[in-house]
Design a protein around this nucleic acid. Structure first.
Length: 841
RNA sequence: GGGCGCUUAGCUCAGGGGAAGAGCGCUUCCUUGACGCGGAAGAGGUCACAGGUUCAAAUCCUGUAGCGCCCACCA
């Protein structure tokens, strides 16, 4: 046994990191049966930038649970994935290298990215672009792994996956094909939300509302009798796309007009006045124009009222160049020419001028701010365009499936439990099925081709499906089964589906990907369904819900039994922290400054689901705790020797073990509910009482010999062993360091403490409390007298109720040694009163 | 507009019917026989506000306000 003279935290991360790796301390043993395994569906962080303090926070929570479960004898499956699939990666590659993908270019095998991003993006082929994505994500992933390792995540680093790797592409395409075969995936030509910058469709789950400045334009449409029908709109540029005017069926102002027509200003298009209960009499004039498409309500009206489609906004966000057929009059076509080719914003400004000139604008536009739908990663408002897209059923259009999924939400154990409500609200609010196709390049391709008939027409309704054994496939690079590449795009040949799948369509399969679904059925059988999905509350609607949908459809089960939802790390200004804002403190810098155990202490102090602030004070406290653990351990090990457990005989020592037993029971119960924070708090409180009171109390006895010393030694070492293991999930480095002074093997692979091992525990938990109260008064007397704590008390007089008298007599020797008093005088009384007097000099 | 969560000491947060708690910070001490990357003690609070239930409310109920997040139909 070697106890260092001056133990320190510095260097522990490197020392034990290497040792754990060499020993395979956290390696998953796949031979264990299902019920001996604890499987975690680790969130794969987005590999497109840097980890921030919020990641450190939530991943530490999971690691504490993983370490606890491992000490409870569960074999923990704790993989790490990297979400390197999708738009964030594309965008980062575009900015980092200064390139843009042009899928029409041929592959250039000799391509090297420019040293620094050129002013004007360089165009590269799709394959070159994907190679750059792979290069950059690999660099990012290495930096992530280095941070996770130094933070002490007990991940099995042989179990890693990426969401763009071959295994993920195979699983993603396989699941899609199964969905297709069962009728759960389907394609539809329909209006979709469209990002004009990214040039892709966007799913409901990826929307975010932003408050934008706009203006109500009060515009006159013309009734047959010459009277105006006023409509207030924030989007006058869509008047040429107008297909009807709508008002509430019970709105008396408009009832006489239902069934009649009006003509639009400037464009002179004849439009029916229709009724629908979604029209709000309180908004604007009570009458609204229906355009194809200005917003999602327009889509509803268009569908339910069976209106024509008059789309003018193109996928690049500009109005189409040529005047459409439905604008028939010369004046109308001339007016349209003023708008043609303009962006929505430019057209809005111009049409306001035109309406003012024609007298159809009533008053000045009235400025307002209103919520406008954006793609969460995009900059400009979404437009709605019609296109052919793939969908997966998620209950958005099917009440039975929705009920099934709501039932799954109830079946899942949520931590904290109120998070389940968010799931239910999302599922109940679904407006449609899950749009999974994306018009992008870096992602898992939709594994389909379509036949081209002799006339050159593409038959989308009879897709050509690959064999599962051939997965993963890239229809853009490989010919359809049974065809030759030369037939691509030719009459009688085929075309590949040009789209990729939404990144959530793949990451909704992380349990299947990590467990080797359909590839390693033995492993899959031991892991699925998993025990735990830890994740952020912001992605309940995307990742959590998507994973539940896929598991329900494919396996008719939940993907995991528990979902632990973590809170946010807040900025000092109490805003949600995000990496885009950039923060002075990087996680690695924090680890270097305070030590990994200190950072983990801060993180583990945040209760499940609760937001926490980025508080350096808590990290300092954690550091102090870790240092105290080193020093207290050093004292215990130097001042004692191994004694059999039954050497604990002194009432004070037996009381300590009794107290500890209660702590172990409490911490275990807390961890079973995944409440790591409560477990830490219990251990910490007991630990400080142990060092402040118990160690001081038995110090004198421990330095002596005889049965009193043996009892103290046994109790000190037993309690140290318990504390080290109680702290091991939180402070893996310092506990392992101390363990190594004393014991063989890793503290992270020994059994979690149990009450059965504390066989000598007494039943008088109150003894130490009473004795502690006396100690406290003795300290206060010395503090008041401004003397050293080592100054002996001249007098120690206690009045105590009957029960406490026995306790004090039992601890008398220790009390005298700790306070320096020569005599403990006890008188009987109703309550405990302590008189401690320091010698007058 | 709807939902969920939060509001407790200067700060960060526990507690959750039965005498207001911790850490940090602050004040005053202790020069250290495990620990100065220490230790001891002290001051500091109408538990957001208003009603209600109760012998008793920080705690349960109702409402209000502020903050955060999520959702919603951009006329």
């Amino acid at each position: 046994m070697t106890v260092p003279d001056k133990p320190a935290l510095e260097g522990l991360e490197a020392k034990w990191g290497e040792r754990w790796e060499a020993d395979g301390t956290y390696r998953f043993d796949r031979t264990r049966p299902r019920d001996a395994i604890y499987a975690i569906d680790t969130p794969p962080p987005t590999a497109s930038g840097a980890l921030h303090v919020g990641h450190v926070f939530s991943y530490t929570h999971t690691d504490c649970v993983a370490r606890y479960m491992r000490m409870r004898g569960r074999e923990v499956f704790y993989p790490m994935g990297w979400d390197d699939n999708g738009l964030p990666t594309e965008r980062r590659v575009q900015n980092y290298y200064g390139v843009r993908c042009d899928p029409t270019l041929p592959y250039d095998p000799a391509f090297e990215p420019p040293d620094k991003p050129p002013k004007r993006p360089q165009l590269v082929s799709r394959r070159n672009f994907i190679e750059l994505c792979e290069t950059l994500t690999e660099i990012d992933e290495q930096a992530y792994e280095a941070l996770w390792r130094s933070l002490g995540l007990s991940v099995d680093w042989t179990q890693t996956y990426t969401t763009i790797g071959a295994a993920a592409r195979t699983a993603s395409q396989r699941a899609f094909l199964r969905n297709l075969a069962r009728g759960e995936a389907y394609q539809q030509e329909a209006p979709v939300l469209w990002d004009i910058d990214f040039q892709t469709a966007v799913a409901q789950a990826e929307l975010e509302e932003r408050e934008l400045a706009g203006a109500y334009h009060r515009v006159a449409f013309h009734r047959a009798d010459g009277e105006p029908l006023h409509v207030e709109t924030t989007r006058p540029e869509l008047i040429p796309s107008c297909v009807a005017i709508v008002a509430h069926p019970e709105d008396e102002r408009y009832q006489p007009l239902f069934g009649t027509t009006v003509t639009s200003p400037l464009f002179e298009v004849e439009l029916p006045v229709v009724a629908h209960e979604l029209a709000d009499p309180e908004k604007g004039s009570g009458a609204a124009m229906i355009c194809t498409f200005g917003d999602t309500t327009d889509v509803t009206w268009w569908r339910e009222l069976d209106l024509p489609t008059r789309a003018l906004v193109q996928r690049n966000g500009r109005l189409q160049a040529d005047a459409p057929d439905w604008i028939a009059t010369e004046a109308g076509r001339a007016a349209y020419a003023e708008l043609a080719g303009k962006t929505a914003k430019q057209a809005k400004a111009r049409i306001a001028e035109l309406l003012a000139e024609s007298g159809d604008l009533d008053g000045d536009p009235r400025p307002i701010t209103h919520p406008v739908k954006h793609y969460e990663k995009g900059d400009r408002p979404l437009e709605i365009v019609t296109s052919r897209q793939w969908y997966i059923r998620n209950g958005g259009r099917d009440a039975d499936l929705r009920d099934d999924l709501l039932r799954r939400g109830k079946e899942l154990q949520w931590v904290p439990d109120y998070m389940q409500v968010r799931y239910e609200h999302w599922v109940n609010g679904l407006a449609g099925d899950w749009l999974i196709s994306r018009q992008r390049y870096y992602g898992v391709p939709i594994p389909l081709w379509y036949p081209v008939d002799a006339a050159g027409e593409v038959h989308h309704d009879s897709p050509i499906v690959p064999d599962e054994a051939a997965l993963p496939v890239d229809p853009a690079a490989e010919p359809a089964p049974g065809y030759d590449e030369s037939q691509r795009g030719r009459p009688g040949g085929f075309v590949g589906d040009p789209d990729i799948m939404d990144t959530w369509a793949t990451s909704s399969l992380t349990p299947q990907i990590a467990a080797g679904w359909e590839v390693d059925e033995d492993l899959f059988g031991r892991l699925f369904p998993y025990d735990l999905r830890p994740q952020g509350q912001d992605i309940i609607r995307t990742w959590l819900f998507g994973t539940v949908v896929r598991a329900h459809l494919e396996h008719d089960s939940l993907p995991w039994s528990h979902a632990a939802i973590s809170g946010w790390v807040l900025d000092p200004d109490r805003k949600k922290m995000s990496k885009s804002k950039g923060h002075a403190t990087t996680p690695m810098g924090m680890v270097e400054k305070f030590g990994a155990d200190a950072i983990r202490y801060w993180a583990a102090s945040g209760r499940p689901g609760a937001d926490t602030s980025d508080d350096e004070n808590q990290m300092k406290v954690g550091r102090r705790l870790a240092i105290k653990l080193l020093n207290a351990s050093r004292f215990v090990l130097n001042a004692s020797q191994d004694e059999p457990p039954d050497a604990v005989a002194e009432p004070v020592d037996r009381a300590l073990l009794a107290q500890l037993e209660a702590v172990v029971t409490g911490a275990t119960a807390a961890f079973e509910e995944l409440d790591y924070a409560r477990a830490l708090n219990l251990a910490e409180q007991a630990f400080w009482a142990w060092t402040d009171d118990y160690l001081e109390l038995v110090k004198g006895r421990a330095y002596g010999d005889g049965t009193g010393a043996a009892s103290a030694h046994a109790a000190l070492r037993q309690s140290l062993g318990v504390f080290l293991r109680l702290f091991a999930p939180f402070l893996p480095y310092v506990t392992e360091e101390v363990w190594s002074w004393w014991r063989d093997g890793s503290v992270h692979r020994v059994d979690w403490p149990s009450s059965s091992e504390l066989s000598a525990a007494g039943d008088d938990v109150a003894l130490l409390e009473t004795v502690g109260a006396v100690l406290y008064e003795a300290r206060r007397a010395k503090s008041d007298a401004q003397v050293s704590m080592r100054t002996p008390l001249a007098e120690l007089l206690v009045t105590a109720p009957a029960g406490d008298v026995d306790r004090l007599r039992a601890a008398e020797g220790d009390l005298l040694a700790a306070t320096g008093a020569s005599e403990l005088a006890i008188t009987a009384g109703d309550e405990l009163v302590v008189r401690a007097v320091v010698a007058a000099d």
